[in-house]
Every structure is written in C-alpha cells, then in structure tokens.
Design a protein around this nucleic acid. Sequence first.
DNA 1: CAGTGGTCTAGACCACATT
DNA 2: ATGTGGTCTAGACCACTGT
Lengths: 241, 241
Amino acid sequence: MGLPLYREVKHKLLESLRGGEWKPGEIIPAEKRLCERFGVSVGTLRKAVDELTAENILIRHQGRGTFVASHSQDRYMFGFFHVFAQDGRKEYPKVEFISLTKDKADADSAARLGVKKGAKLIRIVNRLSLGGRAVIIDDILLPEHFFAGMSEAQVRERRTTLYQLYQDSFGVGVLRTEERLRACGANAQMAQLLGVAEGTPLLHVIRRALSFRDEVVELRHSYVLTDQHEYFAGDDSQGHG
Amino acid sequence: MGLPLYREVKHKLLESLRGGEWKPGEIIPAEKRLCERFGVSVGTLRKAVDELTAENILIRHQGRGTFVASHSQDRYMFGFFHVFAQDGRKEYPKVEFISLTKDKADADSAARLGVKKGAKLIRIVNRLSLGGRAVIIDDILLPEHFFAGMSEAQVRERRTTLYQLYQDSFGVGVLRTEERLRACGANAQMAQLLGVAEGTPLLHVIRRALSFRDEVVELRHSYVLTDQHEYFAGDDSQGHG
DNA sequence: CAGTGGTCTAGACCACATT
DNA sequence: ATGTGGTCTAGACCACTGT
C-alpha cells in the first residue's frame, strides 16, 4: 500500500481515461457519483481531480461539470505555441502546407521518437507566417504506425490544428510536449522558404509530443526567424493576484 | 468581498513575508498557530499554503515545518539553469568571472528592466563551462539602486550562486524568472570568449529575474553554444506516477 | 428549479523528524 | 514523547449553469 487514497483514486480515473470510458471533450460523472463509485469522501475525490486538472488532463467548469481535455484552437495557442512578436502581441500563425512525404528514421530521429532506426515515418513540412511574414518552418516527423493512411489531402484541407487532426482522425491525443532549443544557421531550403540568406541564425526548437501513455507521437523541428520574434519559455501557470 | 477566504489568508501571509516578519530560509509558525491567528480551519489554511508552495514561495517539510524559500545550489540547478549536454546529463557549470563595470541603460535594457533610459546599471560578464568547455557567456545587467556598493571582489570571491549573493548581501530575493529566446551570430567578443568563429549561431536567452514585489531585479543575456548542448523548456513539475 | 463544481468547517488519525 | 505536516471524513453552504 503506502499510497495515499487520493493517489489510488487518481490512478483509477487515469485507467478509465486510458481505457476509453470517457473520451476527449466528454464530460465525466459528477463528483458525488465518483465519490460513491470509489467509496471516498468529496475532499479526497477532489484532491485526485485537482492533480489531474493541474496536469491538463481534466478541465473543470463550475456549474457545468468536469471534462476530459481535448485540443482546441485556444488550447493550442495557450499551451503549445510559444513564438510571439517581440512586443509581446499574441497572434495565430497562418499555416501554409509545403509537403507530405514518406521517410525513414535516421539515428537522431529514431532516438528521439523511441523507434528503431529505419522505421517508417511520415514527414510534413509547413511554413508559418506571423504578421504577414514567413517566420517559422515546421519539419514534422510522425511514426507511421500511429498515423497509417494519412494523406496529403487530409493535411492540406484540414481547418483545424494538426493536433486536432491527430485526435479526431487517428485517436491520438497529445497531452503534453517537451521542447529543447538550439541555434543553427539556415540551410539552402530554409533560407529559400523564409526568404533570408543562407547561414542566417535561426532558433531551432525540437519538440516531442507525448500521449497519455507517454509514447512519443510526434517529433517536430521548428526553425524560427527571431529578428522580430521571440520564443517565450515562462511558466505557464502563475497566480500572482 | 467576493474573495475566497483562503485567498485572503494567502494575501495576509504574503504581506507578512513582504514585511519581513519571516525571512528567506526561516521557518514560519505551525499550521495550528496560523489557524488560530487567522481564525480559519486547517483545510482553509492549507489551501492558502498549497498555493504558496506551488509558487515556490514556501517549502513544506513533513515533520519539520514550513519554510520561506531561499536560494540554494540545488534550487538554482532545479529551477533556473536550463542548459544541459545533448545526452541529458545534468552538470553544474564552472563559472569564470570576466568583468564588472558600471554602465547606463540603453533603450532596450531600460524597457526590459522597467527603469529610465540612462539609469545607472552594474554590468557583470561571466563565462560558464560545461564538461571543461566554454559554452555560455552571461552578460548581466543590474539596476544599481538594488545593489548599491556591489564590488568586483564580492562577485569574484563569492562561493555561491549570484542569486544567493543578491539575497544574502543585498536582501534581494529572486522569486521567479521569465525567459525569452532568440538566435544570433557570435560577435567578436563572444567569439573570442567561446573560442569559435565570428558569426557562429548562438542561442540568445534573455532572462528577467523578478522579486517578491514583481520588480525586475536582473536582466541577463546568456549566449549559448549549442553544438553539443541544448536548452530545456519542459514544464518543471510533472507527476505522472 | 435542479445539478454542478467551489469553499469551508471541526475534527480524527497517520507519517515523519527532532528532542 | 512531542510537534510537525499529510491524509481523510461527513457533512454544510455558496456560486454558477442550464432548463
């Protein structure tokens, strides 16, 4: 044992979520129901749910209910997109599809994705603009076994974020991401796509997107032109009232 | 009122902290005492303290007591230093003092520090090494009114982190930081200090360090050589048991 | 209105650290 | 043994949302 009761409850909730009893966007039973189901008091149940909301797995709405987190335009903006104009203005990027190809994992991609070298990948390249100017190249690598049958049309014609596409069309929910940053010089292709000279310093963001089960679902290399923009690394949640 | 009781309690605790009733590193009264003092129940008091611990303002130790957060080597490593070897190894940087000079705020520094253009600054330059190799140049700008009388000897001979020096010698506690990242090419001085060619792409980290009262206490430009190292932007706190 | 999450209480007992 | 924070209960009432 040794495990606090509210942790056990949390694990039982996670099991139900992983098992698909409640899907992204759906409501989960009221606190009172869950208390009866698990045989605990409100305070204990709430502490379990508190932790799950802190981890962005559940979302509470007073008076309405508690919901399983899902990907929306807002959540994307709030939690996953970190590049802003230097003056701090927030703006949705305009996404321009460049290509979708099949590829195989090289040593670096294999290590970061947790697949074997040579494993089949789908590769998507996008160009993102902010304030009417090309600022970011996204080079996205997806293990094919999560996204079998993904077509160029699907990606090109979507009217949502990629993460919503993963979720809605492939049942792959991105729960959290982990980013590592470096600096590099623009190669010929990036230079051309961004309209800058070869060798221009770019911010290189390496993002791994993780599922519920902590599988690496996407590896994304973003190359960012930072002469007029900045990447924000702040703690998301601060309550300094 | 409209403000939940536990928020009021939190604010009262913050006032006592700001007023200096309890100083960094000191213990605060036991929960029972605080309950009596504020006339609330344990649960309510705990909820207030919960938020303050989540914000790294207080630290609880079961069986010992609750303490005001202070800067230690570990906390520095855990919360403020984000550059690691590519393979993920954590390592304390070796810090080498380069210079301490007096300076005046240019437009950019003034804006980021929240002082007037031309305000007096103290400027410290350090070189940091990881794995025996120079990897980071820190260019640190301090508003002089927070750090009057800071001497080169003080900075050169300290055996602690800078943030501990700020706290112990000037009563300036760094509570949280906010970082923005860009890419740039090495200028002549950086190139020389890092032993690379001029123009080499560097990661440029712009950190603002904030006090209790949300004053900007330090502006730090870090220039990082990322051929063998990466900057980690992950959420610190994750409890995926 | 009924149902939901949000706050709050007054106590109990447990786990841990220090004396 | 004492004092600390950590967990848990069984209720109560409030604030918000939808019908």
